[in-house]
């Protein structure tokens, strides 16, 4: 499994396309580092979608593989620290 980034200027994170999430929570429960949560907002499909919240992501990919939707989750590793905000 991937280890936490050493370079503090880069980090791992998970991008969840809120429009594609069906709110099943499988990623939330599967993440060993508890990085994901279900938010309170609903998307256009009517689901409360998952959000990436914590910085402890190891980019292990368990959320990606567990997620039933093809394109809802993208996992980034060692991205520049400002990357997520730019999305």
């Amino acid at each position: 499994m991937a280890t936490a980034p050493i370079n503090t200027n880069v980090r791992n994170f998970v991008r969840i396309d809120s429009c594609l999430c069906k709110g099943c929570k499988v990623c939330v429960e599967t993440c060993p580092k508890h990085c994901l949560v279900i938010g309170s907002k609903m998307n256009q499909l009517g689901y409360q979608y998952a959000r990436f919240e914590k910085e402890t992501c190891t980019a292990c990919g368990l959320c990606f593989y567990s997620c039933p939707e093809p394109g809802a989750i993208t996992v980034y590793r060692n991205e520049p620290a400002d990357r997520e905000d730019a999305e």
Partner: peptide, 11 residues
Amino acid sequence: MIKHKKPDAFY
């Protein structure tokens, strides 16, 4: 870098 993303074999 992207480690896991929607595979190209999907439309």
